[in-house]
Design a protein around this nucleic acid. Sequence first.
DNA 1: TAAAAAAGAATGAACGTTCATTTTTAGGCA
DNA 2: TGCCTAAAAATGAACGTTCATTCTTTTTTA
Lengths: 194, 194
Amino acid sequence: MAKLQKSIDKRNALVKATIELVNNNGFHATPMSKIAKMAKVSPATIYLYFENKQDLVNKTYIDVKAEYTKYAFETYKGDMTVEEGFKLIWNRIADFKLKECENAMFLAQCDNTPMIDEQSRQEGIKHLQPLLDLWTRGKKEGIIKPISDYLLYAYAINPLSFLMIIQKRGAFQLDKTHLDEAYQSAWNSIKVIK
Amino acid sequence: MAKLQKSIDKRNALVKATIELVNNNGFHATPMSKIAKMAKVSPATIYLYFENKQDLVNKTYIDVKAEYTKYAFETYKGDMTVEEGFKLIWNRIADFKLKECENAMFLAQCDNTPMIDEQSRQEGIKHLQPLLDLWTRGKKEGIIKPISDYLLYAYAINPLSFLMIIQKRGAFQLDKTHLDEAYQSAWNSIKVIK
DNA sequence: TAAAAAAGAATGAACGTTCATTTTTAGGCA
DNA sequence: TGCCTAAAAATGAACGTTCATTCTTTTTTA
C-alpha cells in the first residue's frame, strides 16, 4: 500500500509538470528531461508510468478533462429545472476555468492543436453527456432553442475559454459583474425568446 | 521585376507550406526541411527570406491575420447602421472561417498556444480596430449592450472559431440554416434587449 | 533475498542553422 | 543583339546540439 501510494504521487507529479511545462512552452518544446526534473524523477522513470511522450500527454489530457467535468457537474441534480441546472453548470464551469486556470489552459491548447490523439479526444468528449442531456430536456420542454448542440455549446459555454485566455494574458480582469453579464449573454443565446 | 516577382512567389510558397504543415503537425513537429520540401526550395533558402523558424511563424501569423481582417472589413462602409454593419462583418468573418478554413485553423492554433511572440500577437490585434469602433458607436446609440469589448467578442465572434474547428473535424456540417441560427445567437447576445 | 522500482549515463536519430559552392540575374560593352 | 562579369540568390551537404528512449546498474520493497 505504501508502494502504491508512492507511485500515485509520482504519477501525479508527472502529470502536473506536464501541464505546467506544456502551457508555457508547448508540447514539442517540452523535453521529457524537463518534465522529469520538475517532477523530481529520472527521465527513465517516466517510462515506468507511461508508454512514451505521446501517451503521457494523452493521459494527462484525459485526466484533466475528467477533473473538469467532475467539477462542472458535481453539484448538479437531475430534479433541477432546466434553467436552474444550466445556471449552476455554467457557473461551475466558469469557476473551474478561472480558479483552475492552468488546467483549463491546457485543455484549450489540446483542443486547438494536433497535440492529442483522436481517440483521446473522443474519450474526453464523453464526459460532457450530462450537459447534453440537460439540453435535450430543455428542448423538449420548449425552454431551450431547438438548435444543434454544437451551436448551443459554441455560444453558451465556449466563450468562457476565450475569456479565460485573455484574462490569463492580463488584458483584463473578469470580475463578478463581468461574470453576471457573461452568464446573461450565454443564457440569452440559448433560451427560447418569447 | 521578374526577379522580384520570383522572390514573392517563393515567400508565399513558404508561408503557405508553413500553414499547412503546422495545421497538421503543430509548430515544433514541423521541421524546416519539410517546409522547404513542400515549398520546393532548399532549407537554406528559407533563411534568405526569414531570420529563423520563429520569425517564419511570426510573419506567417501576421500575414494571415491581415488577410483575415482585410476580408472581414472589405465591404463595410462607415455609413451603415450599427446593425447592418455588424451583420455584414459577422457574415464576412463566418465566410472567411469556412472558406479559408486552413488559414482560420492556423490562427486558432496561434491564439491558443505559446507558438507566437507576444509582440506579433499584439501586432495582429491592431487589425480588429474597425470592429471595436463599430461597437463603440453601437453603445453610444444604445443599440449594443454597454459591456466590455472582450465580452462582446467572446459571445459574438469567437464562437465561429469553435464551430469552424468541429466542422473541420467532421463532427457536423455548418449549413445555411445553422449560420442563420448562429447569427441570431450572436446578435441576441450583444444587442440591447428592449 | 529476490523481485520491482528507480536512476544516470549512453545511444542514435532528427533537427535548426550555417558553410562552401554553384546557379541565376542584371546590365555594361562589343 | 549577344557576350561577359560581378553581385545576388539558391543549393545540398555538413555541423553541432537536443531530444526521446533504452541499457545497465543501484536502490528500495515486501
